[in-house]
């Protein structure tokens, strides 16, 4: 059955050539100076961890993740549970939730700009005077756009989880006199726990794409509350600070791996 390996070979060659080898070089470079010649030990890591912009970007990214993911996971679960009960219109709504996924970021930039301008539609509608993109609110604009974009994706994932729960369990519970809420907390939620891991991880991965909105709406230097890791890396790239970039990439990869493994551990305990 070794023939299977030959099916994988073209892909694996590309993966090694384009991903693994260069990343190994990045790890090596993270311990060398900017020209890649002199070994400097952990100095690049030290520089990065003392870099104000890095700390800002890291804390924004963490804050963004900590706010967005619980919000998205709960809202989409609520929508999925309600949607499952609907006949007819339900499947149309489900498709409509997916539309934002298909809308290219570049196409909505225009709407975002007109919506969140100081004299934009939103302020006009509610007679507000908020400068959305140039204040702390910029962070929340980004949160909103992430939720808007990913709601449908998570609803589909939850619905897949919900479809896996046997209807007999609900029937039995109803015969025993359990109400709707009781059913939700005692049957639906515990049975959805396995889906929670996948949904959290996928939502986390999608959260990195929020940079696109941030970049297209606000450019290279957005308000500091929406300054993300990718902004910082772009700046380092432009300055050709390859040493910092190498250390930063390794730190990011390690953090993502660690988080995914922690989630997996927590999930397998269930």
């Amino acid at each position: 059955m070794r023939k299977g390996f030959f099916f994988v070979l073209p892909s694996l060659t590309g993966v090694i050539l384009f991903l693994l080898l260069p990343f190994a070089d990045v790890v090596r470079r993270s311990f060398f100076d900017v020209l890649g010649n002199a070994f400097v030990g952990l100095r690049n890591y030290q520089t990065v961890f003392q870099n104000g912009a890095f700390l800002q970007a890291a804390s924004n990214t963490l804050r963004f993740t900590a706010v967005c993911i619980p919000l998205l996971v709960t809202v989409s679960l609520a929508a999925a549970v309600l949607l499952k009960e609907q006949k007819g219109m339900g499947s149309i709504f489900k498709s409509m939730y997916l539309v934002p996924m298909a809308i290219p970021v570049a196409s909505v930039v225009l709407l975002w700009k007109l919506l969140f301008d100081r004299s934009g539609i939103l302020n006009g509608l509610f007679s507000l005077e908020i400068d959305w993109m140039n204040s702390e609110y910029a962070f929340w604009v980004l949160v909103f756009s992430y939720l808007w974009k990913n709601l449908g994706y998570d609803v589909i994932l939850w619905l897949a989880g919900l479809a896996g729960i046997a209807p007999e369990i609900y029937e039995a519970a109803r015969v025993d006199g359990a109400g709707q809420w009781r059913c939700f907390f005692s049957i639906t939620l515990p049975n959805l726990l396995p889906s929670l891991y996948t949904i959290t991880v996928l939502s986390f991965l999608n959260s990195f794409k929020a940079f696109r909105e941030a970049y297209l709406v606000a450019g290279d230097y957005p308000h500091q509350s929406m300054y993300l890791m990718q902004h910082l890396f772009n700046n380092w790239f432009r300055e050709l600070s390859l040493d910092k970039l190498a250390a930063g990439a390794v730190i990011n990869a390690a953090a993502i791996l660690l988080l995914v493994m922690l989630l997996r551990r927590a999930w397998e305990k269930e």
Binding site: F5, V15, P22, F208, F211, M229, A246, A249, A253, I256
Partner: peptide, 29 residues
Amino acid sequence: RFCFPLRRLLSVLYIILMMMPFQVRMLSD
């Protein structure tokens, strides 16, 4: 659909690589 040495390892590797956003891959690319 096949069993060959390292198959499991490769599957895990592919999943890990799938998770890495552009900010991680930027310099290596």
